[in-house]
Design a protein around this nucleic acid. Structure first.
Lengths: 120, 120
DNA sequence: CTTATAATTAACTATGTGGTTAAATAACCA
DNA sequence: TGGTTATTTAACCACATAGTTAATTATAAG
Protein backbone atom coordinates (compact mmCIF):
# COMPACT_ATOMS: atom_id res chain seq x y z
CA UNK A 1 0.00 0.00 0.00
CA UNK A 2 2.63 2.46 -1.09
CA UNK A 3 0.71 4.80 -3.39
CA UNK A 4 -0.39 8.12 -2.01
CA UNK A 5 -4.10 7.74 -2.65
CA UNK A 6 -4.23 4.35 -0.93
CA UNK A 7 -2.36 5.79 2.02
CA UNK A 8 -4.86 8.63 2.26
CA UNK A 9 -7.96 6.47 2.02
CA UNK A 10 -6.45 3.99 4.47
CA UNK A 11 -5.85 6.79 6.97
CA UNK A 12 -9.45 7.95 6.59
CA UNK A 13 -10.83 4.46 7.10
CA UNK A 14 -10.97 4.82 10.86
CA UNK A 15 -13.46 6.85 12.87
CA UNK A 16 -10.89 7.80 15.52
CA UNK A 17 -8.60 9.28 12.90
CA UNK A 18 -11.45 11.10 11.18
CA UNK A 19 -12.47 12.56 14.54
CA UNK A 20 -8.91 13.72 15.08
CA UNK A 21 -8.94 15.50 11.75
CA UNK A 22 -12.27 17.08 12.68
CA UNK A 23 -10.72 18.31 15.91
CA UNK A 24 -7.70 19.68 14.08
CA UNK A 25 -9.96 21.52 11.68
CA UNK A 26 -10.87 23.68 14.71
CA UNK A 27 -7.21 24.51 15.20
CA UNK A 28 -3.81 23.26 16.34
CA UNK A 29 -3.83 20.71 19.17
CA UNK A 30 -1.31 18.77 21.22
CA UNK A 31 -1.31 14.99 21.42
CA UNK A 32 -2.97 15.12 24.85
CA UNK A 33 -5.62 17.49 23.54
CA UNK A 34 -6.31 15.16 20.66
CA UNK A 35 -6.30 12.13 22.93
CA UNK A 36 -8.76 13.54 25.45
CA UNK A 37 -12.01 12.35 23.79
CA UNK A 38 -10.60 8.85 23.34
CA UNK A 39 -8.82 8.10 26.61
CA UNK A 40 -11.95 6.36 27.87
CA UNK A 41 -11.65 3.92 24.99
CA UNK A 42 -7.93 3.65 24.34
CA UNK A 43 -4.50 4.33 25.72
CA UNK A 44 -2.16 7.17 24.83
CA UNK A 45 0.18 4.97 22.78
CA UNK A 46 -2.79 3.97 20.67
CA UNK A 47 -3.41 7.66 20.02
CA UNK A 48 0.25 8.14 19.10
CA UNK A 49 -0.11 5.33 16.58
CA UNK A 50 -3.18 6.87 14.98
CA UNK A 51 -1.32 10.15 14.68
CA UNK A 52 1.57 8.35 13.04
CA UNK A 53 -0.82 6.95 10.43
CA UNK A 54 -2.19 10.43 9.76
CA UNK A 55 1.31 11.84 9.62
CA UNK A 56 2.54 9.19 7.20
CA UNK A 57 -0.43 9.95 4.97
CA UNK A 58 0.59 13.61 5.11
CA UNK A 59 -2.75 14.60 6.62
CA UNK A 60 -1.18 16.23 9.67
CA UNK A 61 2.17 17.80 10.54
CA UNK A 62 3.66 17.61 14.00
CA UNK A 63 5.90 20.37 15.32
CA UNK A 64 7.84 20.69 18.59
CA UNK A 65 7.14 23.21 21.29
CA UNK A 66 8.72 22.47 24.69
CA UNK A 67 7.46 19.03 25.72
CA UNK A 68 4.38 19.32 23.49
CA UNK A 69 3.96 18.20 19.91
CA UNK A 70 1.35 20.52 18.45
CA UNK A 71 -0.36 18.99 15.41
CA UNK A 72 -1.90 20.78 12.49
CA UNK A 73 -4.11 19.53 9.74
CA UNK A 74 -2.78 19.38 6.21
CA UNK A 75 -5.67 18.84 3.86
CA UNK A 76 -3.66 18.68 0.64
CA UNK A 77 -3.94 14.88 0.32
CA UNK A 78 -7.71 15.23 0.74
CA UNK A 79 -7.72 17.28 -2.42
CA UNK A 80 -6.29 14.36 -4.38
CA UNK A 81 -8.80 11.99 -2.84
CA UNK A 82 -11.61 14.40 -3.61
CA UNK A 83 -10.41 14.81 -7.18
CA UNK A 84 -10.38 11.03 -7.56
CA UNK A 85 -13.96 10.79 -6.36
CA UNK A 86 -15.15 13.66 -8.47
CA UNK A 87 -14.96 11.40 -11.51
CA UNK A 88 -17.79 9.33 -10.03
CA UNK A 89 -20.06 12.22 -9.16
CA UNK A 90 -22.16 11.64 -12.27
CA UNK A 91 -22.87 8.15 -11.04
CA UNK A 92 -24.24 9.09 -7.67
CA UNK A 93 -26.18 11.96 -9.20
CA UNK A 94 -27.53 9.57 -11.79
CA UNK A 95 -28.76 7.32 -9.02
CA UNK A 96 -30.74 10.26 -7.63
CA UNK A 97 -32.22 10.68 -11.07
CA UNK A 98 -33.20 7.04 -11.01
CA UNK A 99 -34.78 7.45 -7.59
CA UNK A 100 -36.63 10.43 -8.93
CA UNK A 101 -37.85 8.44 -11.93
CA UNK A 102 -38.88 5.63 -9.65
CA UNK A 103 -40.90 7.96 -7.46
CA UNK A 104 -42.61 9.43 -10.51
CA UNK A 105 -43.42 5.97 -11.76
CA UNK A 106 -44.84 4.97 -8.38
CA UNK A 107 -47.05 8.02 -8.43
CA UNK A 108 -48.20 7.21 -11.96
CA UNK A 109 -48.95 3.61 -11.00
CA UNK A 110 -51.11 4.72 -8.11
CA UNK A 111 -53.49 6.26 -10.62
CA UNK A 112 -53.56 3.09 -12.74
CA UNK A 113 -53.79 0.56 -9.92
CA UNK A 114 -55.84 -2.57 -10.56
CA UNK A 115 -53.74 -3.20 -13.62
CA UNK A 116 -51.64 -6.36 -13.07
CA UNK A 117 -47.89 -5.87 -13.68
CA UNK A 118 -46.22 -8.58 -15.73
CA UNK A 119 -43.18 -10.18 -14.16
CA UNK A 120 -40.03 -8.85 -15.79
CA UNK B 1 -14.67 -1.20 11.35
CA UNK B 2 -18.44 -1.36 11.14
CA UNK B 3 -19.44 2.18 10.22
CA UNK B 4 -20.33 2.88 6.65
CA UNK B 5 -17.80 5.61 5.99
CA UNK B 6 -14.91 3.50 7.28
CA UNK B 7 -16.06 0.64 5.12
CA UNK B 8 -16.12 2.89 2.08
CA UNK B 9 -12.70 4.43 2.65
CA UNK B 10 -11.25 1.02 3.43
CA UNK B 11 -12.59 -0.33 0.14
CA UNK B 12 -11.03 2.59 -1.73
CA UNK B 13 -7.66 2.12 -0.05
CA UNK B 14 -6.47 -0.36 -2.64
CA UNK B 15 -5.39 0.41 -6.21
CA UNK B 16 -6.79 -2.85 -7.57
CA UNK B 17 -10.23 -2.05 -6.21
CA UNK B 18 -10.09 1.51 -7.46
CA UNK B 19 -9.16 0.21 -10.90
CA UNK B 20 -12.13 -2.15 -10.76
CA UNK B 21 -14.44 0.75 -10.00
CA UNK B 22 -12.88 2.67 -12.88
CA UNK B 23 -13.59 -0.27 -15.16
CA UNK B 24 -17.16 -0.51 -13.91
CA UNK B 25 -17.69 3.18 -14.56
CA UNK B 26 -17.39 2.22 -18.26
CA UNK B 27 -20.24 -0.25 -17.84
CA UNK B 28 -21.33 -3.59 -16.43
CA UNK B 29 -18.67 -6.32 -16.37
CA UNK B 30 -18.39 -9.96 -15.33
CA UNK B 31 -15.86 -11.19 -12.79
CA UNK B 32 -13.63 -12.52 -15.57
CA UNK B 33 -13.83 -9.20 -17.40
CA UNK B 34 -12.87 -7.37 -14.25
CA UNK B 35 -10.11 -9.85 -13.49
CA UNK B 36 -8.47 -9.66 -16.93
CA UNK B 37 -6.12 -6.71 -16.23
CA UNK B 38 -4.91 -8.31 -13.00
CA UNK B 39 -4.48 -11.99 -13.82
CA UNK B 40 -0.78 -11.37 -14.50
CA UNK B 41 -0.44 -10.21 -10.90
CA UNK B 42 -2.99 -12.21 -8.96
CA UNK B 43 -5.25 -15.22 -9.04
CA UNK B 44 -8.98 -15.29 -9.66
CA UNK B 45 -9.84 -15.97 -6.02
CA UNK B 46 -7.95 -12.82 -5.09
CA UNK B 47 -10.17 -10.92 -7.52
CA UNK B 48 -13.27 -12.49 -5.97
CA UNK B 49 -12.10 -11.24 -2.60
CA UNK B 50 -11.59 -7.71 -3.82
CA UNK B 51 -15.08 -7.77 -5.29
CA UNK B 52 -16.44 -8.97 -1.96
CA UNK B 53 -14.86 -5.96 -0.26
CA UNK B 54 -16.42 -3.62 -2.80
CA UNK B 55 -19.74 -5.37 -2.46
CA UNK B 56 -19.72 -5.21 1.34
CA UNK B 57 -19.00 -1.48 1.08
CA UNK B 58 -22.00 -1.20 -1.23
CA UNK B 59 -19.84 0.15 -4.04
CA UNK B 60 -20.88 -2.57 -6.47
CA UNK B 61 -23.84 -4.87 -6.91
CA UNK B 62 -23.53 -8.36 -8.33
CA UNK B 63 -26.38 -9.95 -10.29
CA UNK B 64 -26.74 -13.42 -11.77
CA UNK B 65 -26.93 -14.17 -15.46
CA UNK B 66 -26.36 -17.82 -16.38
CA UNK B 67 -22.90 -18.70 -15.08
CA UNK B 68 -21.82 -15.08 -15.04
CA UNK B 69 -22.04 -12.57 -12.21
CA UNK B 70 -22.31 -9.19 -13.91
CA UNK B 71 -21.22 -6.38 -11.62
CA UNK B 72 -22.37 -2.81 -11.65
CA UNK B 73 -21.03 0.22 -9.90
CA UNK B 74 -23.08 1.84 -7.16
CA UNK B 75 -21.59 5.22 -6.39
CA UNK B 76 -23.99 6.17 -3.60
CA UNK B 77 -21.46 5.48 -0.82
CA UNK B 78 -19.01 7.71 -2.67
CA UNK B 79 -21.42 10.57 -2.19
CA UNK B 80 -21.21 10.19 1.57
CA UNK B 81 -17.44 10.02 1.40
CA UNK B 82 -17.36 13.06 -0.82
CA UNK B 83 -19.69 14.94 1.50
CA UNK B 84 -17.42 14.10 4.41
CA UNK B 85 -14.41 15.49 2.57
CA UNK B 86 -16.19 18.58 1.40
CA UNK B 87 -15.96 19.97 4.94
CA UNK B 88 -12.18 20.13 4.50
CA UNK B 89 -12.18 21.83 1.13
CA UNK B 90 -11.53 25.21 2.73
CA UNK B 91 -8.33 23.77 4.22
CA UNK B 92 -6.81 22.54 1.04
CA UNK B 93 -7.82 25.73 -0.71
CA UNK B 94 -6.39 27.72 2.17
CA UNK B 95 -3.12 25.85 1.83
CA UNK B 96 -2.83 27.14 -1.70
CA UNK B 97 -3.38 30.62 -0.29
CA UNK B 98 -0.65 29.96 2.26
CA UNK B 99 1.73 28.85 -0.46
CA UNK B 100 0.92 32.03 -2.29
CA UNK B 101 1.56 34.11 0.83
CA UNK B 102 4.78 32.25 1.46
CA UNK B 103 6.04 32.97 -2.00
CA UNK B 104 5.18 36.64 -1.60
CA UNK B 105 6.96 36.73 1.74
CA UNK B 106 10.04 35.08 0.27
CA UNK B 107 10.11 37.70 -2.41
CA UNK B 108 9.70 40.48 0.17
CA UNK B 109 12.45 39.03 2.38
CA UNK B 110 14.88 39.03 -0.48
CA UNK B 111 14.66 42.79 -0.48
CA UNK B 112 15.06 43.07 3.35
CA UNK B 113 17.72 40.42 3.92
CA UNK B 114 20.22 40.97 6.74
CA UNK B 115 17.47 41.69 9.28
CA UNK B 116 17.45 39.12 12.13
CA UNK B 117 14.06 37.54 12.95
CA UNK B 118 13.13 37.22 16.68
CA UNK B 119 12.20 33.77 17.88
CA UNK B 120 8.43 33.42 18.35
C1' DC C 1 19.25 16.95 41.12
C1' DT C 2 14.66 15.53 41.49
C1' DT C 3 10.16 15.43 40.17
C1' DA C 4 6.26 16.16 37.11
C1' DT C 5 4.24 16.35 32.53
C1' DA C 6 4.13 15.10 27.53
C1' DA C 7 4.91 11.87 24.31
C1' DT C 8 7.20 7.94 22.27
C1' DT C 9 9.21 3.30 22.00
C1' DA C 10 9.38 -1.64 22.93
C1' DA C 11 7.42 -5.92 23.23
C1' DC C 12 3.59 -8.42 22.89
C1' DT C 13 -1.27 -10.08 21.36
C1' DA C 14 -5.43 -10.64 18.61
C1' DT C 15 -7.54 -9.87 14.49
C1' DG C 16 -7.76 -8.34 9.63
C1' DT C 17 -5.97 -8.23 4.89
C1' DG C 18 -4.28 -9.84 0.64
C1' DG C 19 -2.46 -13.35 -1.41
C1' DT C 20 -1.89 -18.49 -2.63
C1' DT C 21 -3.43 -23.49 -4.41
C1' DA C 22 -6.78 -27.01 -4.61
C1' DA C 23 -11.38 -28.34 -4.49
C1' DA C 24 -16.32 -27.37 -4.96
C1' DT C 25 -20.38 -25.36 -7.06
C1' DA C 26 -23.24 -23.47 -10.84
C1' DA C 27 -24.88 -23.18 -15.33
C1' DC C 28 -24.51 -24.11 -20.01
C1' DC C 29 -23.55 -27.32 -24.06
C1' DA C 30 -23.43 -31.69 -26.65
C1' DT D 1 -24.52 -38.11 -18.77
C1' DG D 2 -20.18 -35.82 -19.14
C1' DG D 3 -17.45 -31.89 -20.25
C1' DT D 4 -16.53 -26.85 -20.31
C1' DT D 5 -16.67 -22.31 -18.52
C1' DA D 6 -17.42 -19.05 -14.64
C1' DT D 7 -17.04 -18.27 -10.05
C1' DT D 8 -16.72 -19.30 -5.21
C1' DT D 9 -15.14 -21.69 -1.01
C1' DA D 10 -11.70 -23.80 2.00
C1' DA D 11 -7.48 -23.95 4.10
C1' DC D 12 -3.53 -21.94 4.58
C1' DC D 13 0.36 -18.22 4.95
C1' DA D 14 2.80 -13.72 5.59
C1' DC D 15 2.29 -9.40 6.98
C1' DA D 16 -0.33 -5.23 8.63
C1' DT D 17 -3.30 -3.06 12.04
C1' DA D 18 -5.08 -1.72 16.37
C1' DG D 19 -4.77 -2.35 20.69
C1' DT D 20 -2.34 -3.36 25.36
C1' DT D 21 1.23 -2.46 29.47
C1' DA D 22 5.71 -1.15 30.91
C1' DA D 23 9.70 1.36 30.18
C1' DT D 24 12.06 5.36 28.07
C1' DT D 25 13.01 9.98 26.40
C1' DA D 26 12.42 15.01 26.46
C1' DT D 27 11.44 19.22 28.51
C1' DA D 28 10.14 22.20 32.26
C1' DA D 29 9.89 23.59 37.02
C1' DG D 30 11.18 23.30 41.92
Amino acid sequence: MEDHLSLTFQALADPTRRAMLARLSKGEASVTDLAKPFLKNMSLPAVTKHLKVLEKAGLITKTREAQWRPCRINAAPLKDASDWMEVYREFWEESFDRLDEYLKKLKAEKKTKGKKDGKK
